[in-house]
Design a protein around this nucleic acid. Structure first.
Lengths: 230, 230
DNA sequence: AAGTGGCGTGAAGGATCCGTGAAGACGCGG
DNA sequence: CCGCGTCTTCACGGATCCTTCACGCCACTT
């Protein structure tokens, strides 16, 4: 999760950066409103922490300019207790308003709340379609002409690796490390058996492959191209 | 725009009602957490104002129960300045936290901000129907061909998690963390026993499952599709 | 033309996981 | 203090899955 901090006081930038990074966030920090707007466009952060008392542009102006191209959640930080400032910032498009000095605990909680709301932006692959075959990575469900297929964990993981690297040649060693773990790399018999059951369940033949091609001595390759969603 | 007010003090309910109605909102007001959860299910409000100091149920519990079936924005009103209360409420699923006494102007602005970002979300039905099985998430009531079923708290929570993620494959670890808490993740025997009693009470069989499918080595999946409401 | 290595098939042993039944541990209210 | 409901834990038979081996087949090398 990327967080953009916009504040003109360096010590606050540093404090926020360390606290946020300690909680696993990726942090970018700038000191002016102008830079803030540009950074919001360039970095595509998942959340924006914005100080209202910036030297160059007014805070509400920054919000408005960001809102012109992005729906990123904005939490405003400000020393001003003034009601009209809060109202103006919120109506300009801010998502929350925290007055300095603030408790880090509370800020983190409000940050989590804001991120949770914007959650459904999961750019997860919807479902990959190859002819009558459908692979739903999110639900971990594979169907063939409508009928759900039952895949064992290893089978599914192998299929997942293949379809997410379609067209690429995947070597034996790479596949083994990826599916079985770091300690593996020479057990090509594992691959043979699982590629076989996969081909069987997916309705592919080794002699005339439409999905999985074996590259002798090297590895395997998923050749089917995903069709566009309806 | 419909706003649901949950507060045990009648004068605050009245004050909020008049102020909100003066600004064009449609207002429903109740005095207990229990009524609040039911009203959130029945009225399908666009926003919820919730007092934390309710006489019957704890405020965070109200939020959690509402979050089981609805994504409606919740703004918490509270006299408690305590940081841990804020954090708990926000992490339970609240969208904002305002401490009493509050300025009406600010509350209205936060309300507008919450409504603006909630956008067009489809109202999830508070009661799900699967054949002769009905699950009322708001009332925490499960009936099978009309007969009410008695579920223990853990059983109900497990069922709730399953039906609200229908079709998805839910990992052992994910389910354990979700139902039992963060500290768990390996106790698959818990899952086995509770899945068993659930299947028994819901009338499902492990051999020929119509509701809960076990994915060996991975987790469980709720396969029944919710029918449209009458 | 014979040899060799890699691949596809079939099948089987063993480890792991699941469903089932039941019993002890715990908290709560009478 | 005791009974009740709920949660936790254990043991075991059976199903599932992972691993492994043996055997043809083909392509390529020698």
């Amino acid at each position: 999760m990327k967080v953009l901090v916009v504040d003109d006081e360096p010590q606050i930038r540093r404090a926020l950066r360390t606290s946020l990074e300690a909680h696993g966030y990726e942090v970018a920090a700038v000191g002016t409103g102008e830079e803030g707007v540009l950074a919001a466009a360039d970095h595509q952060p998942d959340l924006m922490l914005l100080d209202l008392g910036l030297p160059d542009i007014d805070g509400t102006e920054v919000i408005a300019r960001v809102r012109a191209f992005s729906e990123v959640p904005v939490i405003v930080l400000s020393v001003r207790e003034n009601q009209s400032d809060k109202v103006a910032a919120l109506d300009a498009g801010a998502d929350d308003y925290v007055t300095k000095p603030f408790a880090m605990e509370e800020l983190l909680a409000r940050l989590r709340a804001a991120l949770r709301r914007s959650g459904p932006d999961e750019p997860t692959q919807p479902t990959l379609t190859f002819g009558d075959l459908e692979v739903d990575l999110a639900r971990r469900l594979v169907t063939r002409s409508g009928e759900p297929l039952h895949l064992t964990p290893t089978e599914h993981q192998l299929l997942e690796v293949l379809v997410t690297h379609q067209g690429k040649l995947l070597t034996h060693q790479w596949l083994l490390r990826r599916v079985w773990g770091q300690g593996y790399g020479t057990e090509t018999t594992y691959l043979r058996t699982y590629i076989r059951t996969l081909r069987k369940k997916l309705g592919d033949e080794a002699a005339a492959p439409a999905l999985i091609v074996t590259e002798p001595g090297v590895g395997y390759r998923w050749i089917a191209e995903a069709e566009a969603e309806a």
